[in-house]
Design a protein around this nucleic acid. Structure first.
Lengths: 128, 128
DNA sequence: CTTCTGTATTAAATATATTAGTACAGTTAA
DNA sequence: TTAACTGTACTAATATATTTAATACAGAAG
């Protein structure tokens, strides 16, 4: 389910966050689905529960999961996500990447076609 | 020229790297232009020269600047940059951002139009 | 020769990340 | 109720990363 790279210089809790986000976004984890408990996942990865807790805490702050005391942590349904702030962040990120793509002279068409391909692949819910 | 955010949790050398890259990509710094020396910039920002050195070292490894011993550090001309690896990184980054944009249901058209706008703004050298 | 440049190194100090252990409150099921 | 699970919080100790400090060397420029 999860793979940690101990050689990587990025913190473990960041790696956990990223992988959880990827699974949510890809649809591998569905709305309101229960994700492993802090202690469970810690045991699976043989790392400290506090590290998982830190990852979950930030995922919750960013709106990707929600936690219910004594019950568990669950995937936030897509429609419940507070989108506006996140969309702004994503667009800023997008701008930065595209400006550098322009700098290294990747043609506009190539970028646009790539994006359309991504939307075609799994964009069946947002293809307006 | 540079602004550091001491409150930010991102390392100073990262902030310097990011700002230098932004200035290069935006064209504020031109090809073969001399950038401030390690000691100069350290004095300007009232931080340690070693921190600047670390930023410059990575910028050089990533191909954005080149350094000549005893002369200074300079902006790598765009055409001399080893692009392939960097383009791969940028496309991976782009994919990740776009997949999340899809997840939060931003329509394809909006993304594409935004990118075309960016290319139109300053893409006069890569508008094929 | 003097002053500037990049580069390198070592040591100390600070900040961040991780582990370890413990505790509390609430849920679930036996 | 009891037992086992959940999230959450906290402190302390350790490990790693970052930053500062102080030097030093080699080459370029005036």
């Amino acid at each position: 389910m999860f793979q940690l790279n101990l050689k990587d210089h990025s913190p473990l809790y960041q790696q956990i966050k990223e992988q959880m986000k990827t699974m949510i976004i890809s649809g591998a984890l569905k709305a309101d689905e229960k994700i492993p408990s802090v202690r469970e996942l810690a045991q699976m990865l043989t790392i400290n529960p506090n590290t998982i807790q830190k990852a979950y805490k930030e995922l919750e702050q960013e709106g990707f999961i929600y936690s219910i005391r004594a019950k568990g942590s669950f995937v936030t349904p897509r429609d419940n996500i507070l989108k506006e702030v996140r969309i702004n962040e994503l667009m800023t990120n997008l701008e930065k990447t595209v400006r550098e793509l322009i700098y290294v002279q990747v043609p506009c068409q190539q970028v646009v076609l790539y994006i359309k391909k991504l939307y075609a692949e799994e964009g069946s819910t947002a293809d307006d």
